[in-house]
C-alpha cells in the first residue's frame, strides 16, 4: 500500500489536541481512507475539544457534536435523513472515546448495532476518561493508575470486541496508528460494507498513560507486538488476526508508561494470555 496515494486531509492543522495525541493521528488516517463524503458525530470526549472552538473547526467534513450517551442514536437519525435526501453514499461516522463507548453510551451503541444501522462506529480507546483528567473507565486495563484508581485498577478491561460480536454486525475490526496500512485497509473495507461497522482504535495518550509525547507510535506498536492489543477483524462472523504478535515480553509495553508503575507484570501477563485463549476459541 502506498500511503502517499491517500492524499485527502480531512484534518486541519491547528487542532487543539495535546502533543502526541494518538486520537488525532487516528482521525487523520480514518478520513484519508473514507474521504470527504462523510459526516461525523462526536460525543463528549477529548475530541469535543480537539474539534475546535468556534469559529475554528479541525474537521473539513460536516460534524455534529453530541451529548455523551447518544451519539449512535444521533447518527441513526442522520443516516435516516441522508437516505431520505437520496445521499446514501455519504458515510456516517461516530467518533467516540471509551467513556462513551464502553460506559455511558453502551445502551445506545448496542441498540444501533442491533438495528444494524448503516454507520461506521469508531471508538478511539485511550483507556480512561482523559478529557476530565484521567479517571478510570471500564476500558482501563488492570493495574493501571488513574486519578480514581490511585493504587491501580483492580478489575479487568471490558472486552468490547466480544460484546459487539454478540450483536452479529457485518464488520468489526481493531486498529492502531502504529500500523497505518492495516488501519487504512480496515477503514476502506468498512466503507464498502453496508450496515453497522465497529472499529476499535487503541489510542495512546501521553498525558494519561504517562509517556513522552514522541513515543505514541512506539507505544501503540508495543501494544501489538507484546500481544496486549490484538489486531483483528471479524467480517460476517469470521475472525482473522491481521498482524500476528511477536510475543515480546509484556514488560516492554508496561515499562514505557508510568501509569503501570504499580501494576504487577505477572498478573498483567496472565490477563493478556487469558484474553488470547478466549480469542483463539473464535479463530
Amino acid at each position: 500500500m502506498d500511503l502517499k496515494a491517500f492524499s485527502y486531509e480531512g484534518l486541519s492543522s491547528g487542532h487543539l489536541a495535546c502533543a502526541g495525541c494518538g486520537a488525532v493521528l487516528a482521525m487523520r488516517l480514518a478520513l484519508k481512507a473514507i474521504g470527504s463524503n462523510a459526516r461525523v458525530v462526536i460525543p463528549a470526549s477529548c475530541w469535543s475539544i480537539i474539534a475546535g472552538r468556534h469559529p475554528d473547526a479541525s474537521l473539513k467534513v460536516p460534524m455534529m457534536h453530541s451529548t455523551f450517551e447518544v451519539a449512535p442514536s444521533i447518527a441513526s437519525g442522520m443516516r435516516a435523513a441522508l437516505n431520505r435526501l437520496g445521499l446514501k453514499d455519504t458515510v456516517v461516522m461516530v467518533w467516540a472515546g471509551d467513556g462513551a463507548t464502553y460506559d455511558i453510551g453502551f445502551a445506545s451503541l448496542s441498540a444501533a448495532a442491533e438495528r444494524n444501522e448503516d454507520i461506521i462506529y469508531v471508538c478511539y480507546d485511550n483507556e480512561a476518561y482523559m478529557n476530565t483528567g484521567i479517571q478510570r473507565s471500564s476500558s482501563t486495563p488492570p493495574g493501571a493508575w488513574t486519578t480514581t484508581t490511585p493504587e491501580g485498577k483492580l478489575e479487568e478491561k471490558k472486552n468490547i470486541i466480544l460484546a459487539m460480536y454478540a450483536h452479529r454486525i457485518p464488520y468489526i475490526a481493531t486498529a492502531t496508528v502504529a500500523y497505518p496500512e492495516d488501519f487504512i485497509a480496515k477503514f476502506q473495507k468498512a466503507k464498502r460494507i453496508k450496515g453497522f461497522r465497529f472499529i476499535l482504535v487503541l489510542s495512546p495518550c501521553p498525558t494519561g498513560w504517562r509517556f513522552e509525547e514522541k513515543r505514541t507510535v512506539e507505544v501503540a506498536r508495543l501494544a501489538v507486538e507484546t500481544g496486549v492489543f490484538p489486531l483483528l477483524e471479524i467480517e460476517n462472523g469470521a475472525w482473522r488476526i491481521t498482524k500476528e504478535p511477536m510475543w515480546l515480553p509484556v514488560d516492554r509495553y508496561l515499562k514505557v508508561q508510568s501509569r503501570f508503575a504499580k501494576a504487577s507484570t505477572e498478573s498483567f501477563e496472565r490477563s493478556v494470555k487469558e484474553n488470547w485463549r478466549f480469542l483463539e476459541r473464535f479463530l
Binding site: A75, G77, M78, A80, A81, L82, R84, L85
Partner: peptide
C-alpha cells in the same frame, strides 16, 4: 437523539 440527528440534516 434520532430526531435531533434527522432535523439537523
Amino acid at each position: 437523539a434520532v430526531v435531533i440527528g434527522a432535523v439537523a440534516q
